[in-house]
Amino acid sequence: MKMKVGTLVFGAAIGLTAAAANATTLEDVVARGELICGVSTGVAGFAAPDDQGNWSGVDIDVCRAVAAAVLGDASKVKYVPTTSKERFTALQSGEVDMLSRVTTWTFSRDVGLGFEFVGVNYYDGQGFMVPKALGVTSALQLDGATVCVQTGTTTELNLADYFRANNMEYSAVNVETADESRENYLSGACDVYTTDSSALAAARSTFDDPSAHQILPEIISKEPLGPLVRHGDAQWGDIVRWSFNAMVVAEEKGVTQGNVDDMKGSNDPEIQRLLGTDGDMGKQLGLSADWAYQVISQVGNYGESFERHIGVNTPIGLERGLNQLWTKGGILYSPPMR
């Protein structure tokens, strides 16, 4: 049952009695004509509003892919910015249909909190950045250092574990947002900046003199970041999972936003299944036959999304690294489309 209160801001508390009831998230989304996607309040390259007020980033592209698959229009997404504190409540209470906001896939979140992580759209790991002038070459030399860390994330737990395991002391400067961490680090309020290494690289690229800072070789945690949905609606989980996987498979098979129309005539059976010219995968998901075609033609494949928002030619300037396809030395791997 799904009831909607308060869309009219004031008087509609009464609208409660006249509510449409749908059994599944898919039906809700279709009836609404819009996907509600929980995103972060601003992480450069992953989700941030641009100068025109449109959200963009790799996390945003996952939302857009799902909207394209379900509704046939990638722009029919309502982005609900959530803080790291309220993100899980927002998903649990049904305020959002899915979360795509740099959330680490962990046991307790997957099992304890009752969510379903459907994939990994960015393989990350927590690292340290220090000014070169400090003369530090390893994280093991950081005893007594002051560390900038963002609160409300797994980062601070990893940090505590790492320093404890290595018998080192530290003091932390806890702040709410990445931007504040960056300001603190640059002004020297802390010696070390720790967060996911992708974010470290992103932050470094925006410094006036990036070459004066280095990222230490130690990666102290695994941070698989991915989209997640509520437990209990397996169909919806499948849709989000395969909307994302379609982007990965498309990159494997060389299907891009530009050539997707030509590829429809391809002889490769997997491409045919992907683009809906063969088989009934769309129907099995409860979607139209060309769902993946819509994803690729409107959002692009994974590599395109990556290069568009965080790749080497963007201000963020990240290498593909672990997020390269498994065939090219990375660990990005989608189950086969068959």
Binding site: A44, P49, R182, T206
Partner: peptide, 17 residues
């Protein structure tokens, strides 16, 4: 204030808090 903070998290404007 939230909008201003969101503006300075964008890569184009980072550091202008």
């Amino acid at each position: 204030l939230g909008m201003a903070k969101a503006a300075v998290t964008h890569a184009n404007w980072i550091g202008l808090a």
